[in-house]
């Protein structure tokens, strides 16, 4: 090989090298490393280490102390109320969210676009404002004469407000993309509208419905701001887990706060992992 041919003799030619050869790839890999490192440091300092400390703090004095903190009467009552209310809210959202998505996609009426835009309002509105707003309409000075303050129904209404968009927004796109030919094929085979809905449309909507409901549930159990005002935070009656934790922090019962927090985190994690598994199992069939 003549000396003049390859000015950079130390670089062996690679079959698919980009114009700049090996250094570009090494640079890219270094970039990945640096980026990953930076991202991990950021995440760790803001999210991961603090959360790990919550779990650690709750276990600091052993599992017995953990369970004791979780099973104190007010903590346990708060957890029970939270989970039950969230389940109720999840079910209501499953039905109403699908109905609303259906109406927004299949129906036509004046002002539909405005209604569609409003659905996202609970996402954008601060939770405390939501709480104030619901208290104004369904509290002591309600113009409708409905007083849900200091009641579990009030808590449920608050949770319904903040979780409204979840099921609607996961079901809507699926409904929009649904093959209308499938429905017409079913009609040509003799299936009426309800039968078609039950056997053709619903099975295809179910994954989105389940996913939206799971998200609504995890949001529900974590909710704080919107329940604070209307519930009156009566322990054993209307105090949700997040409010209980707040009280524990304020009175410097860190172990108690950490224990109930850990329970919430574990429940959320379980729901999301299950959802992921179900989605992946479903994807294999499709």
């Amino acid at each position: 090989m003549a000396v003049t041919e390859t000015p950079t003799r130390e670089r062996a030619p690679e079959p698919q090298a980009p114009p700049a050869g090996r250094p570009a790839r090494a640079r890219h890999r270094a970039g990945t490393g640096l980026g990953l490192g930076t991202a991990m440091v950021y995440l760790s300092l803001v999210v991961l280490i603090p959360l790990a400390l919550v779990v650690w703090r709750s276990m600091e004095r052993g599992p017995a102390a953990f369970w004791q903190a979780v099973r104190t009467p007010d903590a346990w009552a708060a957890l029970q109320l939270t989970v039950l209310a969230s389940l109720a809210v999840a079910v209501i959202n499953l039905v109403m969210g699908t109905v609303i998505a259906w109406v927004l996609v299949r129906d036509r009426f004046p002002g539909k676009r405005l209604v569609d835009a409003l659905i996202d309002l609970p996402f954008a509105l601060p939770t405390i404002v939501a709480g104030l707003v619901l208290l104004a309409l369904y509290g002591p000075s309600s113009p409708l004469g409905v007083d849900l303050a200091y009641s579990r129904a009030g808590v449920v209404v608050a949770l319904l407000f903040v979780t409204l968009p979840f099921v609607v927004r996961t079901v809507q796109p699926v409904l929009l993309e649904l093959d209308r030919d499938m429905e017409q094929a079913a009609w040509s085979l003799g299936a009426g509208p309800w039968y078609t809905f039950r056997r053709i449309i619903l099975p295809n909507l179910l994954p989105a419905m389940v996913s939206g409901t799971a998200l609504a549930f995890t949001r529900s159990i974590a909710e704080f701001g919107s329940t604070v005002l209307i519930s009156g935070n009566l322990p054993f009656k209307t105090q949700v887990a997040a409010v209980h934790i707040f009280g524990q922090i304020e009175s410097d019962h860190q172990l108690g706060a950490a224990a109930v927090s850990t329970v919430l985190l574990v429940v959320a994690l379980l729901v999301l992992v299950t959802l992921d598994l179900v989605q992946r199992w479903g994807a294999r069939r499709g």
Binding site: D179, D181, M182, A185, S188, L189, G286
Partner: peptide, 28 residues
Amino acid sequence: PQRRNVGFVFQHYAAFKHLTVFGNVAFG
């Protein structure tokens, strides 16, 4: 259309994707 007893085949098949081949044919 349900009452006309007319079979229809679509250009893009309109297969019931969540049902097996057996399920599809058995539907009617």
